[in-house]
Simulated assay, not measured.
Amino acid sequence: MKWVEKTAKTIDEAVEMALQELNITKDNVDIEVLEQPNKGLFGLIGTRLAKVRVTIREEQKEELPIVEKINNEEDKKKEKDIAYKFLREVLNCMDIKAEIKIKYKETGLYINLIGPRMGMIIGRRGQTLDSLQYLVSLVVNKNKGKDEYVRIVLDTENYRKKREETLVRLANRLAERVVKTRKKVELEPMNPYERRIIHSTLQNHPSVFTYSEGEEPNRKVIIACK
């Protein structure tokens, strides 16, 4: 996933800088406000710049010039083998029998687990699945450079899609509450993937905007009135 972070006096300026660097239009990206600008006391003390992360949407990647290293078939096979071996060892330790299906797509390595006890793999709100995905990513990308990074997506029972649909509904419902009450809403801590779903869902909303605050793993999304 290609993204850049920019800081400027205003959010619009930071976004424009990011768009220029990515050479893409605003319609084809997701925008996450990392820090709100603050003029500080008397415009001098405690001044803080706006900071944004602008991420190219997956469907736009094929239209962009190819600037990253493309792994050859041998590299892909090696990465699939590493992911499979690691997952098999972890599942054996958890005493979970599951079929591991791995498919290389243009945007990364997609892994699907199929078995009778997938609830244990998913965990509370997907936390176990996210943790396992993170570990697989660490193992596969060990000793790789930034331009060689392989995106890993681990899923089971179509959980990712179901979770995304749930978050989209949640974002829209909370946005309505913010518009009615004129009070900001603070969501529970989420991982970066889930925060992007909230930001993307509401980025074109006429009455609210979103930003993230806090440190990982307790970073959360705030929905507020424009």
Results as ranks from 00 to 15, higher is better:
residue 182 R to E: 14
residue 172 N to Y: 02
residue 187 L to N: 13
residue 180 K to V: 07
residue 206 P to Y: 09
residue 189 P to L: 09
residue 199 H to F: 03
residue 180 K to I: 06
residue 188 E to Q: 15
residue 171 A to T: 01
residue 187 L to H: 13
residue 205 H to D: 15
residue 188 E to N: 15
residue 205 H to R: 07
residue 188 E to K: 14
residue 177 R to W: 02
residue 176 E to M: 09
residue 185 V to D: 08
residue 205 H to G: 10
residue 174 L to E: 09
residue 185 V to L: 04
residue 195 R to D: 07
residue 201 T to R: 02
residue 175 A to P: 08
residue 172 N to G: 02
residue 184 K to A: 03
residue 196 R to V: 01
residue 202 L to S: 03
residue 178 V to P: 10
residue 195 R to P: 09
residue 207 S to W: 11
residue 191 N to A: 00
residue 210 T to R: 02
residue 175 A to V: 10
residue 215 E to I: 13
residue 183 K to T: 15
residue 173 R to M: 06
residue 188 E to I: 15
residue 173 R to P: 01
residue 183 K to L: 12
residue 190 M to S: 11
residue 175 A to D: 09
residue 211 Y to N: 08
residue 188 E to A: 15
residue 211 Y to K: 11
residue 195 R to N: 07
residue 192 P to G: 04
residue 213 E to N: 04
residue 196 R to L: 08
residue 196 R to N: 07
residue 184 K to V: 02
residue 205 H to N: 15
residue 173 R to N: 11
residue 192 P to D: 03
residue 198 I to C: 06
residue 171 A to S: 09
residue 209 F to K: 15
residue 214 G to R: 04
residue 207 S to H: 15
residue 188 E to M: 12
residue 205 H to Y: 09
residue 215 E to G: 08
residue 200 S to D: 04
residue 177 R to C: 01
residue 174 L to Y: 13
residue 194 E to F: 05
residue 174 L to H: 09
residue 182 R to H: 11
residue 211 Y to S: 04
residue 212 S to P: 06
residue 200 S to N: 13
residue 183 K to F: 10
residue 193 Y to M: 05
residue 198 I to Y: 05
residue 215 E to C: 06
residue 213 E to R: 12
residue 188 E to T: 15
residue 214 G to C: 07
residue 177 R to E: 08
residue 196 R to T: 03
residue 210 T to S: 04
residue 208 V to W: 04
residue 193 Y to T: 13
residue 180 K to N: 12
residue 214 G to A: 07
residue 181 T to M: 01
residue 189 P to C: 08
residue 175 A to Q: 07
residue 209 F to N: 14
residue 183 K to H: 14
residue 209 F to S: 14
residue 179 V to S: 03
residue 175 A to S: 14
residue 172 N to D: 13
residue 210 T to Y: 01
residue 214 G to W: 02
residue 174 L to Q: 10
residue 176 E to Q: 12
residue 190 M to L: 15
residue 189 P to F: 07
residue 212 S to D: 10
residue 203 Q to E: 11
residue 184 K to S: 05
residue 184 K to G: 00
residue 191 N to K: 02
residue 212 S to A: 14
residue 201 T to E: 06
residue 188 E to V: 14
residue 215 E to N: 14
